[in-house]
């Protein structure tokens, strides 16, 4: 089956990461005082999701440029 699951996982989490990073950068800081102990968790976790998504995309790409039912 010529379908690498890492590709949709990578794309989806990269999209989520971008959304959170952009929203974290432009949103009102008051929402973080009200919810996440004053930490801009959207920015931080968005970056984590972006890195995770990028790693998955890299692994999918690497498998694509490179194995043989008992």
């Amino acid at each position: 089956m010529n379908f690498d699951l890492r590709l949709p996982i990578g794309i989806m989490f990269s999209v989520f990461g971008v959304i959170l990073v952009v929203f974290g950068a432009v949103s009102d800081k008051a929402i973080y005082e009200a919810h996440s102990l004053g930490i801009n968790i959207n920015l931080i976790w968005g970056a984590v999701l972006l890195v995770f998504g990028a790693c998955m995309l890299f692994l999918a790409w690497r498998a694509g440029v490179k194995p043989p039912q008992e």
Binding site: S27, S36, N42
Partner: peptide
């Protein structure tokens, strides 16, 4: 509801 602001709440 207590810890997640809009954005992360969606996740």
């Amino acid at each position: 509801a207590k810890y997640f602001p809009t954005g992360l709440l969606g996740i």
